[in-house]
Design a protein around this nucleic acid. Sequence first.
DNA 1: AGGCCAATACTG
DNA 2: CAGTAT
DNA 3: GCCT
Length: 331
Amino acid sequence: MFHIEIRQKNRPLVFYKERLYLILSFLFFLWYNVLKILCAKGKYKMHKKEIANILNDIGLLLELKGENPFKSRAYYNAARTIELLDEDIEILVKEDRLKDIKGIGEAINKKITELVLTGKMKYYEDLKASIPEGLVEMLKIPGLGPKKIKTIYEKLNITTIRELEYACIENRLIDLAGFGEKTQKKILEGIQFVKQFSGQHLYPEAYTEALKLKEYLDMTKTALVTKIAGSLRRKKEIVKDIDILAAASDSSKVMEAFVNYPGVKEVIAKGDTKTSVILKSGINADLRVVTEKEFPYALHHFTGSKEHNTAMRHRAKQMGIKMNEYGRQKM
DNA sequence: AGGCCAATACTG
DNA sequence: CAGTAT
DNA sequence: GCCT
């Protein structure tokens, strides 16, 4: 080892003193790399945002269950606290300092710890399974809260926004206790409002999601390089999906890694060149895999915009160059 | 053990 | 107008 | 559920 080898030469103490800085930085370098390797090898790292989202979800689900509103609030508060936390959540968990944070007590501490260590939370899984997904979506409808949703579900057995819309049109809500003409109209308008903006996501939301996804893909080391493409790469304020481009010799490995991303809710399509999924956050994500040679051209192509591409290709053509997502050659 | 945000719109 | 849901 |  390092120390022994030097000692064998029987140096004077001054030698070490003079080189203390070098030695220390070398040791630090070693330590850092070992840590880095361990991290890369280890499990997928849970982000603060995801933990916060889950706590927030629990709050919503509890409201739908008709639980004590203050209990839901406790989860909302904890979610906010976690999201705004500066410190690394994993370190906090490992040193068992989570409970020292205001707003996090016995119960939530245990749940977060379980989530960070195992990547799962039994309580949340069970809770989520006990309530139809559509009910949670209904919360996005302005003017509709957990109490009314609960009534709608229990009395009319409605579980999706679509069903709810029909029920409104058929005037089936006004009979319910606590509902009236105005409420029904408001709900119907609310549904239109939600529809209008569904499938559109704000840049910051989409971008943080995309970064996590990219970070995960890079960790799996199945691709030579990955890059966020599409309108997200162009920093559009509003995007409809996440586009990721990867270069690899074996695309199937990358696709496999992609669909196994913990943030994936549903796989829409899986092929050799393109795979589409829906993330738990509700954002669609596409992954395209090309060869290393094609990558620059593909990146240009998939960054777009479509208008930009057609204009550029038109120009290229005038210059006697053929250009597409695979490459560029003189005609 | 007992409190936890305040203002507003709607129903009955 | 009081109670309730948002 | 959390805090005092």
